[in-house]
Nucleic acid binder design. Sequence first.
DNA 1: GACAAGTATAGTACAAAGTTCTACAATTAG
DNA 2: CTAATTGTAGAACTTTGTACTATACTTGTC
Lengths: 107, 107
Amino acid sequence: MKKSKAYRSEAAAAIHETATGLFEAGVIDKRTMREFDDSCLTPIHEFTPGEIRALREREQVSQTVFAHHLNISKDSISQWERGEKRPAGPSLKLLSLIERKGLASIA
Amino acid sequence: MKKSKAYRSEAAAAIHETATGLFEAGVIDKRTMREFDDSCLTPIHEFTPGEIRALREREQVSQTVFAHHLNISKDSISQWERGEKRPAGPSLKLLSLIERKGLASIA
DNA sequence: GACAAGTATAGTACAAAGTTCTACAATTAG
DNA sequence: CTAATTGTAGAACTTTGTACTATACTTGTC
């Protein structure tokens, strides 16, 4: 996965709707629209074991409950926090969402 | 992953906050709280290749763009839709979120 | 028309994620 | 004291997801 520019999510959402309208009206082309689309995604980055634990503790849940929210096993959370394994693709997306918008946003 | 009861997400969110308050006030115990927590999660189910494609087309995006949103490769989306591989744990969670709340909800 | 770019299929090979199982502490609840 | 919860630890195992090709259809542009 490559880079992705950072935008404030709420502002981005609003602007995005406007852009969608412009696209449908034929004001901006497909290419611009797609690249714009990408730039609106929540920035995704790697997480250190400590960051994962801090994130979970911020949300005040046990490894088991945290795992349920991510739809993975509790063992995996333990492995992430101990640095035995590192979360990948879709898991990083979910962690980024939690970091930005809180655990409730993916409930 | 086990079962999970279905609740309307908005109503559930409100009720959940109330329950959290009750827990903090000591009215309900930890166990009840945790089980309640689980029941509030968006129900997760398997997706057939056709359902995945239908979901993507409902959101009007190409495989590439869809992949970016899920933070996976475009090849994986293609494989899902052709039934060559099946989305697992965290991927299913994201698909379920999109199905319930739309692609924008995980932007 | 020719040419490039975007979209999707198809096949291979591979690393690593995530699962499941077990056992063992430490803490807390009843 | 007993039982349940929480987290660590290590193992073997399955399969996702990646990366790399090549091909074909469509679309837009010069």
